[in-house]
């Protein structure tokens, strides 16, 4: 999706490994943990990104966006993807439009003409944020080390889009498919976020989810 280079990821949700406590003391054991079996963190090529500020639920804006991009306005906290482009719901009056790499210019042009005369603001923000991919069986638990959102499969799944915090910085999260997360953060803190994610991936996981 969104022009991000696809990486081989196991089909579907990888079976979760459950932590089963021993009822006898084990002096050489750790806290309930399971080792990291293939959960990885990677910086990925950043897609083109456009901020649209406007009354996105209003018909004129929604139809202009549909005309220019061919995607409906997503429901709150959702992301919709069609043909390599995505619309992410940021707030009641803000969309983040993800395009294939380098594709923001033409999309802005199409949107600008479709939105002609409407009270809305477009800005190319392709350079403002960077993107990470977290993939593998423990990706939910990795992010849950620093994010207060309920990331259990019942509460968060592909199609959901959530702005929250990771450690001490704002991030946005979504799942392009059941085996992986995409995470956006601001460019200036991307070193911090990468370090944070790598640190979290090095350790073991709680085995909770």
């Amino acid at each position: 999706m969104t022009g991000l280079e696809p990486e081989p990821v196991p089909e579907g949700e990888v079976p979760r490994q459950r932590f089963v406590p021993e009822s006898l003391p084990a002096p050489d054991g750790g806290p309930g943990t399971k080792p990291n079996s293939g959960t990885s963190v990677m910086r990925v090529a950043t897609p083109g990104m456009i901020t649209l500020r406007g009354r996105i639920r209003s018909e004129p804006i929604a139809s202009a966006v549909r005309k220019a991009i061919g995607i409906d306005i997503p429901e709150p906290r959702r992301i919709l993807s069609v043909d390599g482009r995505s619309l992410a719901w940021m707030s009641p009056d803000e969309l983040l439009i993800l395009t294939p790499l380098g594709g923001s210019g033409s999309t802005i042009a199409a949107l600008s003409s479709a939105l002609e005369g409407q009270y809305a603001l477009l800005a190319d923000v392709s350079d403002a944020r960077l993107c990470f991919r977290i993939a593998g069986p423990s990706s939910r638990e990795l992010i849950a080390k620093g994010c207060p959102v309920d990331l259990s499969p019942e509460a968060f799944s592909p199609g959901d889009f959530r702005r929250s915090r990771l450690g001490q910085v704002p991030v946005a999260l979504w799942m392009p498919d059941p085996g992986q997360f995409m995470l956006l953060c601001f460019r200036s803190v991307s070193d911090f976020v990468e370090h944070w994610l790598q640190n979290a991936a090095q350790g073991e996981f709680s085995g909770y989810l």
Binding site: D28, P31, T33, P148, Q202, E204
Partner: peptide
């Protein structure tokens, strides 16, 4: 959540010594 000390099993040196659960 705590692990008993000392950590005798070096292969699990990555495991945190303590994990603070923030539960809702």
């Amino acid at each position: 959540e705590h692990r008993p000390r000392p950590n005798m099993d070096k292969s699990r040196a990555d495991a945190p010594r303590q994990r603070l659960w923030r539960i809702r």
